[in-house]
Design a protein around this nucleic acid. Structure first.
Length: 594
RNA sequence: GGUCCAGUAGCUCAGCUGGAUAGAGCAGCAGCCUUCUAAGCUGCGGGUCCCAGGUUCGAGUCCUGGCUGGAUCACCA
């Protein structure tokens, strides 16, 4: 039980005694006292003046007096206007340290196996390499999974690969025509990049065709549909759906190249999945659901044979679910995928980490499923995140402003290496250890940079700022951790005891640190409720700043009081533990030296 | 045009259920390394919290209306 809850309970009793009224816990606002004022916790008493029929100051005085005698942890109180400030005894803060020491995974809730959450993220297309936008998705998805685990959820991370459709056929067709049987191996190209190049090539050749048709007097819209390459791609899609062997084999081969490439990128980012779904495996189930809905009269068919869902009652439009030629669209396969996941896991919650450009899609998905009598549709939650912008505007492949995921990680690595070498602190490291550190620091910088921003907000990715390792950054946090490790190593060398007596007066900075450590559980809870790793990042940043102030002001190795010295080592140890724990939720490693 | 999201310091962002004088980082200026790692610490300057109403003892936070920016409203995904 936290002190805040204890204070609320004591306040309830005191209010009952003083004014004879029962007050709900929610009605008692307890907050941390402003830093510049004396006190640790504050109760705002304005709300009680109606029952006390006295001024806020008098009410606060009466309440303070009562609570002082009732709550042993209260050292003293003071009143400023309607604010009742309590000074809490050092014992309470020393107890926090003890409870952290003795708890197994401090701040984390034990896993409830039955509370299953299926979380989809990444969801790539197999025609394009991963870029900066995917990076936010992947880091966010992985981190939210960890965050929910920390809150006791049994999280299943799933990926849904969009491995079918007209866009795949475009790459296949281009390779067939101009690929000269080259392979990623023969050209030394990463598989996803290799296939992506053919997708681009298709587009270039396609545009040439359109232009010559338009020059020949054809309307542009018509030309886009009539261009031979487009017709060929569509023909290929039909062959694929018919299961024609040659097309299917080509599709299998090229997709495998892409998967091999993706695996490398996922590996460098440090993200993984419990299960991977492919749209090629789920779209038929989606079609089946649509057909059932049609039979039950929930959906309707238009004259040309296309199938729709009427959403006008919900204030939306009609939504296409099957094309006139019977092929399925994005929505169709998402219906099937959702159904499959429900059958696979029967989860309490289904989370989709997908950009806010698809808000409408998920609103519709939920409604359509509900119309199809899937009562579990209410468990669907679209974790909608904002787009990543660059200083010059949006990423546009045409203008070559797409920030490739692999390239970005490599640049970060190079910068981390250069900075580390310049500082010259790890000269005794082996090549392997150094490589490890560069990865830790560069990924730490990237992940922290992306995750510190509230997911739902659009974010600005400034390359120059992303490789800055000072201030509110991943390396800043890592650096603090490394300094603590250095202290702990020295403490062991010198043989400083890990036992200390709690008979001591805490310094202001020590108390502030303990206070902050005590808030870790609440921070994780709050971050989990909001699906927001950024709240964890902000918590860690504040903790680290607080520690650095302490570090600056109080020496540990030079401390003459052995008891204080032992206490400070222990305090540092637990701060390091929480840093490491919080950073692990963000998917960031912490180094012992840097 | 309809719907959804956002607007806080020069820039990038925090500000949980409404609470005291709105905070960080970066950039700028001035200090601190013979002392546990200076990727650090300290100080200074910097604000019409988009605007206008409303609710409240109290509004950056809630409500209404407007302004600005973004997303979306495909037989694309």
């Amino acid at each position: 039980m936290t002190l805040e809850i204890q204070l609320i309970e004591k306040a309830q009793i005191a209010l009952k005694e003083l004014y004879g009224q029962d007050v709900e816990a929610k009605q008692i606002p307890v907050q941390q006292t402003r830093k510049d004022l004396e006190g640790d916790f504050t109760i705002v008493v304005f709300g009680f003046t109606r029952m006390s029929k006295k001024s806020p100051e008098q009410t606060a005085e009466e309440l303070g007096e009562k609570m002082l005698s009732a709550e042993p942890f209260i050292e003293s109180y003071n009143v400023i206007k309607g604010f009742l400030n309590f000074v809490i005894k050092d014992d309470y803060y020393l107890n926090i340290l003890e409870s952290i020491k003795s708890s197994d995974k401090y701040g984390f809730t034990a896993t409830n196996e039955k509370d299953v959450v299926v979380l989809e993220y990444s969801s790539p297309n197999t025609n394009k390499p991963l870029h900066l936008g995917h990076i936010r998705n992947n880091l966010l998805g992985w981190s939210v999974a960890e965050l929910l685990k920390a809150n006791g959820k049994n999280v299943k991370k799933v990926n849904l690969i969009n491995d079918r459709g007209i866009h795949i056929c475009k790459s296949m067709l281009a390779w067939q025509k101009w690929g000269e049987n080259k392979t990623p191996e023969s050209t030394g190209t990463k598989g996803d990049k290799f296939v992506g190049d053919y997708y681009v090539l298709f587009d270039q050749k396609y545009k040439v065709e359109i232009k010559s048709l338009v020059d020949g007097g054809m309307e542009e819209d018509v030309a886009k549909k009539q261009a031979p390459l487009m017709l060929e791609a569509q023909e290929m899609l039909r062959k694929w759906e018919a299961g024609e062997k040659e097309v299917y084999e080509l599709w299998t081969k090229m997709n495998q190249w892409v998967y091999d490439g993706f695996d490398i990128t996922y590996g460098s980012m440090g993200v993984d999945f419990d299960k991977v779904y492919h749209e090629s495996e789920t779209y038929l189930l989606g079609k089946k659901l649509v057909e059932e809905g049609l039979e039950n009269g929930i959906l309707f068919k238009k004259e040309n044979g296309s199938v729709w869902c009427d959403l006008t009652e919900e204030g939306m439009d009609e939504k296409l679910l099957l094309r006139a030629d019977g092929t399925s669209v994005y929505m169709t396969q998402d219906l099937g995928t959702a159904q499959l996941r429900q059958e696979d896991y029967n989860p309490n919650e289904m989370i989709y980490v997908v950009g806010n450009e698809q808000n409408y899609h998920f609103d519709v998905l939920k409604i359509v499923l509900q119309k199809l009598s899937k009562d579990w549709a209410k468990n669907i939650h679209h974790l909608s995140y904002g787009m990543v912008e660059l200083p010059h505007g949006k990423m546009k492949s045409r203008e070559g402003t797409v920030v490739d995921a692999d390239d970005l990680m490599q640049e970060m690595y190079d910068t981390a290496k250069a900075t580390t070498e310049e500082l010259g602190k790890i000269e005794e490291f082996s090549a392997e250890e150094a490589d490890d550190l560069y990865k830790t620091v560069s990924l730490g910088a990237l992940k922290y940079f992306i995750l510190k921003v509230d997911p739902k907000k659009q974010m600005m990715f400034n390359p120059a700022e992303s490789i800055d390792f000072n201030g509110n950054t991943g390396p800043f946090v890592q650096y603090t951790y490394a300094r603590i490790q250095s202290i702990i190593r020295k403490a062991k060398e010198v043989g400083i005891s890990s036992e200390y007596s709690s008979e001591m007066k805490l310094e202001a900075k020590e108390k502030a640190l303990l206070k902050h450590l005590g808030n870790y559980s609440a921070a994780i809870k709050q971050a989990g409720d909001h699906y927001s790793p950024s709240m964890v990042a902000n918590y860690i940043f504040d903790l680290v700043k607080e520690y650095n102030k302490f570090y600056q002001e109080h020496s540990i190795m030079k401390e003459e009081d052995a008891n204080k010295q032992a206490f400070r080592v222990e305090l540092s140890q637990q701060v390091a533990g929480v840093i490491s724990s919080g950073m692990s939720i963000l998917g960031i490693k912490v180094p012992n030296r840097m």
